[in-house]
Amino acid sequence: MLTTEWIISFLAFAFSMAISPGPNNLMVMAASSNFGLARTLPHMFGIWIGFFGLLVLTSLGVGSVVKNVPEVYTVMKVLGALYLLYLGVRIAMADNAIESKEARPFTVVEAAGFQLVNPKGWLMALGTASTFAPQGTDPLNYALVAGGFFTLVNIISNGLWALLGRGIAQLLGTPARRRIFNLSMATLLFISIYFIIV
């Protein structure tokens, strides 16, 4: 399975999917700019753990249920969109979030759990399980190998978005600028909902 061609094509797919703007990357960037890189790490760990688990589930056959029963995928899209609406409102309402005791980034468990209703995550996992698994490969072995590669790619991708958020934070010296940034992040999240539903 681990031919040079397979590794190159898989990594190209994984990186193009992982680096593109989506709910995880936008939330990591917003969290990093509002709370700092160190406090955002649990959120990032949760993404890596949750997506790894999602990839194992799809490779072991849960993905075929989602693909073959359109109602299941529709329910997941609606739940994901509603949750993203909630998160977008939460980001938009964050007022000087660094100073607020209630405001915080996702925990490991929250970020991992979000992957179960993250439509982009499901598309990535389904694409990985259906397109790149060689014929006759043991599903669990494939899931572990693909999950390992995808985790490395996600570490790089989320790390770059978190660093971007940290860099932006230096430009957000006033509450008004921070408010504009949070409203912009919420708007981008709302736009991503449109593409998820359509």
Rank of each mutant, 00 (worst) to 15 (best):
L54S: 10
M93Q: 15
L116H: 02
S16A: 03
L123C: 00
L144V: 08
F181S: 04
K120P: 11
L152I: 11
T3K: 07
L11G: 00
A97K: 06
L126Y: 09
T137G: 12
E99A: 15
N96G: 13
V66F: 00
R90T: 15
R104T: 12
L172V: 08
I98Y: 14
V145D: 04
Q170A: 15
A112K: 00
I98T: 13
S192Q: 04
R90V: 10
N24P: 09
L163F: 04
I180Y: 14
A143P: 02
Y86N: 13
G88P: 11
A103F: 02
V78I: 15
Q135R: 13
M17V: 03
G50A: 08
A111L: 01
Y86L: 14
G88A: 15
V89S: 02
L172W: 00
L2P: 06
L26A: 07
L79G: 10
M27Y: 05
A125H: 00
P21W: 05
L2D: 10
L11P: 09
M124Q: 06
T3D: 12
A81T: 04
V28Y: 07
S20W: 01
N96A: 12
L152A: 08
S184N: 00
F195L: 13
G50H: 05
L55W: 11
V153S: 07
T174Q: 00
G46A: 06
L116T: 11
F45P: 03
G46M: 04
F132K: 03
N158C: 15
G46R: 01
Y83L: 10
P23M: 12
P21R: 08
G63Q: 02
K101Y: 01
S100Q: 04
T107S: 15
L172I: 04
F15A: 13
L26H: 06
S100Y: 06
T3S: 15
R39F: 11
V28R: 02
L163V: 09
A14P: 09
S192H: 09
L84G: 12
E110S: 07
G167S: 10
N182L: 08
F114P: 05
F15R: 03
A30Y: 11
L152Y: 07
V28P: 07
E99W: 08
T3C: 12
L26M: 14
T58H: 03
L116S: 12
A92W: 13
N182Q: 07
G167C: 07
V153F: 02
T40N: 07
V66R: 10
I155M: 04
G53A: 13
V72C: 10
A162Y: 08
P139L: 00
L140P: 02
G147I: 04
R104C: 10
W48T: 13
F35I: 04
L84P: 02
A97E: 12
F35D: 07
Y86K: 11
L84M: 15
M185F: 01
P21L: 01
W161V: 01
P119A: 08
I19K: 05
P42N: 12
D95E: 15
L87Q: 14
M17A: 05
I197M: 14
L26T: 01
G36M: 01
T187Q: 07
